[in-house]
Simulated scan of single mutants.
Amino acid sequence: MTFVPAGTSTLAPWTLWITPETAGWSYAGLRLLTLSDESVLFCTGDEEMLVLPLSGSCQVECDGVRLALEGRVSVFHAVSDFAYLPVGATVRITGAGRFAFPTARASRSFPVRYGPAREVPVEARGTGRINGFCAPDAFECDRLVAVEVLTPAGNRSPRPPYENDMLPGAVREQIYYFEGGPGYQRLHGAEEAMTEVSSGDVVLVPHGCHSPSEAAPGYDLYHLNVLAGPGR
């Protein structure tokens, strides 16, 4: 497990820049972008991507397609629209707010697509919930999987510890991006570790049996979970 403190992995204009190379693995990545009524132009290269508003709204232009993402006030207030960006695309994002870009190195290309908030599956788990906007059974991608998990204060994400390498499709690489908190992330198995996390922090889990995140009493916790591997 690798802890990446908020603000320590950036590459302008990205306020968070995690690629397979910087993470030391092969597939999964995550970028964050903060905009103030401005535009950013970039290319997806060999990665498929999602555009997920964390706060605010934006317009997406990609391969001649224009999409408006309504967004939300914050990750704790609502489910958001999102968009899918294929490999080899040129993209312009215009808007105001903070936006996450989960990525996966991919070998197949799908068309640009809009994911409306009303179609995002929301599952109650204990006292929290999971927004499965890009779960394998909810949205088609090549290798990318991404879900949002909200954990109320004083609780833990309602899954038992599990082993990445034993999941169907051998999904091995996993990124946790946190907001709110403080909270905690624990790793079990041959390597035992626990780290405190709060807004903007990231935890990378390449393997091992790890428990879900835990929210400290009095503090709600959110995490965006990005997974990718040789199969989905």
Rank of each mutant, 00 (worst) to 15 (best):
R66W: 01
R118G: 03
Y162N: 12
T10A: 08
V205E: 00
A83W: 00
L67K: 07
H77F: 05
A117F: 01
E173Y: 05
L85H: 00
W14K: 09
R31S: 10
G231N: 11
L11W: 02
G183E: 06
P111D: 09
V4Y: 14
V87H: 02
P20E: 14
V65Y: 10
F99L: 07
G45Y: 07
D37Q: 10
D220Q: 03
H188R: 10
G7S: 04
A193Y: 06
T127G: 02
V73L: 08
A78S: 06
F178V: 01
V145W: 05
A135Y: 09
V73H: 07
V60I: 09
G45T: 05
S199E: 14
A104M: 04
S80M: 01
A216C: 15
G180R: 08
P212G: 14
V171T: 12
T19S: 14
I175F: 01
Y177E: 00
S109P: 00
D63W: 02
V73S: 08
Q59D: 13
I18F: 08
N155F: 11
Y162Q: 15
E38Q: 12
L30S: 06
P206W: 07
F3H: 12
V60K: 02
H210C: 05
A104F: 05
M1Q: 09
R156H: 15
L33T: 10
A146R: 09
L35W: 11
G189L: 13
Y114D: 00
F3Y: 15
R72Q: 05
P152F: 11
D220G: 07
E119M: 05
P206H: 04
A68T: 14
S107Q: 03
P212S: 11
A216S: 15
G24K: 14
S80G: 05
G183I: 09
P182E: 05
G24S: 14
L150N: 14
T127D: 11
P152M: 11
L50S: 01
R66T: 14
G189F: 12
V40C: 08
T15K: 10
E148D: 15
S107L: 00
S74N: 12
G64E: 11
T34P: 05
V87Y: 01
A78R: 08
F178R: 00
L85T: 01
A96E: 10
P161M: 04
Y114I: 04
A228G: 06
G97F: 07
R156P: 01
R125D: 06
S74D: 15
V147I: 14
E47V: 05
F3L: 13
A96M: 03
T8S: 09
C43W: 08
I18H: 09
G64P: 06
A78P: 00
R31Q: 13
E148G: 10
V73A: 08
V171P: 02
D63Q: 12
T8F: 04
S198H: 13
V120H: 06
T19F: 12
R98L: 11
E21Y: 08
E48Q: 07
L30E: 09
T90C: 03
P168V: 11
S26W: 06
T34G: 09
M1A: 13
G115V: 01
E70W: 00
P168Q: 10
V60M: 04
